[in-house]
Design a protein around this nucleic acid. Structure first.
Length: 539
DNA sequence: CTGGGGATGGGGCCC
DNA sequence: CGGGCCCCATCCCCA
């Protein structure tokens, strides 16, 4: 019995020793592998850092070479720079900026009053062809001395506080603080787009490493998104890291994507009513030139060639609900497209500094907008074709001017500028007799017939008259019986495409209009409206 | 739910 | 190059 006990004790001790040995072995193996793994990670990270630095150096070098080689090839021109230097920009010019369909106007919305004749707030960015090596964008500082002062103002201001105008210190910051009557803002030189980059405007570019493009083939036409950063409440953080007042670009190391403030988070307000915050920061240099003050514009005179000056009175603040119901969703759709299309987002003013992905943001040396655009253009052709709009080469009329929002190609920069109003919501042409605003002069002219009652198109088969030829054409299907739009799911045929589309909701069971109160959904907006009216009357 | 007209948005072409 | 115009698509509203 005693032997048996001793035997069991021995077995137990042996097993314990074996178990300990096994655990030790396992631990050793794990530790070894872990150490190796960590070592590999560390080495990879070091390699990445080294390569990144090399890449930056190379790009900087190429950029400088290009600046020396071709000083005139890329222009981002502020036609108002001269005004700013002359000290006449205390009020700035206003960008009449509104997201398409944003159905409320605020007094402080900046206003742009020009047609695509080269008198807009936007800038042109020329982009190198895909064949050219290295980044091909140079950006001309546009604010000039005004901007430098602005930068200093921000830098000396309190961190995380929005820029405050000096004109009226009694007014709370960010609130509209001045009311100005602006006239003849469109009287700026039309030749801006053709002007050459002078040497003065190159100041600071060497630091920026934003190169000039030679033999430019594609042009992106747009805004400088760094403005978004500057007007952002956190922008002072970014600005304070800059090397000099002439440089408004932060380098990659300065603008750590992961730590980057999400501009859109703030600007999301713009989608829910504070569009002005976005529009001012991105599109209105007047805003910048006024050190961030929110501006109130009472009245703007739009000079339209051959016509009487058109005025928009800010007191007529609201666009008609009916006119904008659809457009609101248009803008939201656009925003959604930006958010779901990273390629677009990288150069969108909305999202230019939003991307927290260090890879995408590090694409650009110094995070320069130009490089982002450059990268974008390299990929633009296929996408533009996919979007059905932008053939950028191979056409009889080469469309080498690209929209910076959707990459659609146009044959000349003015067309791009006009087209980009689709995205920016800029509507420089205002009706003198109502609140309506239009992106194109022709649309305003056409709209004018609403007020005059002019209906030059008369039906030959009935008494009906129409203001537009297309309306007459559409009407004549009533007489001809032509119903070119047929439902694929039933026998129904329609004279209008919209009728077919509306009808197809019957089959789809689509109910896109939901009540915000009870969530009940309707196939058409009017049913929702009726429902809400009923709810309202029962309260 | 359909028919039909009013009106705007926006691209393209022409002068 | 810029303006004007045409045209199509689309939305909206009312009957």
């Amino acid at each position: 019995m005693a032997n048996c006990i001793v035997f069991h004790t021995q077995i137990a001790s042996i097993m314990e020793v074996l178990a300990n040995a096994a655990v030790a072995e396992i631990c050793k193996v794990v530790d070894d592998d872990y150490a190796v793994f960590r070592l590999e990670i560390t080495q990879t990270q070091k390699e990445n850092r080294t390569l990144r630095k090399k890449l930056q150096l190379l790009e900087l070098k190429v950029a400088r070479e290009r600046v020396l080689a071709s000083p005139n090839s890329v222009k981002i021109i502020d036609r108002y720079r001269g005004m700013a230097r002359g000290g006449h920009l205390t009020g700035g010019y206003r960008s009449f900026v509104k997201p398409a369909g944003h159905n409320t106007w605020r007094d402080d919305q900046p206003i742009t009053v020009d047609e695509g004749s080269g008198t807009s707030t936007q800038h042109i960015i020329m982009i190198e062809s895909a064949e050219a090596a290295g980044p091909g964008v140079k950006q001309e500082r546009s604010e000039g001395e005004e901007d430098l002062r602005h930068s200093r103002d921000i830098q000396t201001g309190a961190v995380n506080e929005p820029p405050v105008a000096n004109e009226d210190p009694t007014t709370p910051p960010v609130q509209p603080r001045t009311r100005r009557r602006i006239t003849e803002v469109s009287g700026t030189p039309n030749a801006v787009l053709k002007s050459e980059t002078d040497t003065e405007t190159l100041t600071g570019l060497g630091q920026l490493g934003c190169p000039l493009a030679s033999r430019s083939e594609y042009l992106l036409y747009g805004n400088t998104s760094q403005r978004t950063v500057r007007s952002h409440p956190y922008s002072s953080d970014l600005l304070q890291t800059q090397n000099g007042p002439s440089c408004s670009y932060a380098t990659e190391t300065e603008m750590i994507p992961g730590d980057m403030p999400l501009v859109l988070d703030t600007q999301t307000n713009s989608m829910t009513g504070d569009w002005n915050q976005y529009s001012s920061s991105v599109y209105s240099e007047g805003f910048q030139d006024n050190k961030g003050e929110g501006l109130v514009v009472d009245e703007v005179t739009v000079k339209v060639e051959g016509g009487a000056p058109l005025t928009w009175n800010a007191d007529q603040t609201h666009l008609g609900e009916g006119h904008l119901q659809g457009n609101t969703s248009d803008f939201l759709d656009y925003r959604e497209s930006l958010e779901t299309n990273l390629n677009v987002a990288t150069h969108s003013p909305l999202l230019a500094f939003r991307d927290p992905d260090p890879v995408s943001t590090s694409m650009a040396p110094s995070n320069s907008h130009g490089r982002i655009l450059f990268d974008e253009v390299l990929n633009s052709n296929n996408r533009a074709r996919a979007q059905g709009g932008g053939a950028t080469s191979g056409n009889s009329k080469e469309k080498r001017f690209l929209c910076m929002f959707c990459n659609k190609g146009f044959s000349c920069p003015q067309k791009v500028e006009i087209h980009q109003r689709v995205h920016t919501g800029v509507k420089p042409f205002s009706c003198t007799q109502c609140h309506m605003h239009f992106a194109k002069a022709g649309n305003l002219k056409r709209h004018h017939m609403v007020h005059t009652g002019e209906k030059p198109f008369s039906c030959s088969q009935c008494h009906m008259r129409f203001a537009q030829a297309g309306d007459l054409k559409r009407h004549q299907r009533v007489h001809t019986g032509e119903k070119p739009f047929s439902c694929t799911q039933c026998h129904m045929r329609f004279t209008q495409a919209g009728d077919l589309k509306r009808h197809q909701r019957v089959h789809m069971g689509e109910r896109p209009f939901a009540s915000t109160q009870c969530g009940k959904r309707f196939s058409e907006r009017r049913y929702l409206r009726i429902h809400q009216q009923k709810k309202h009357s029962t309260k």
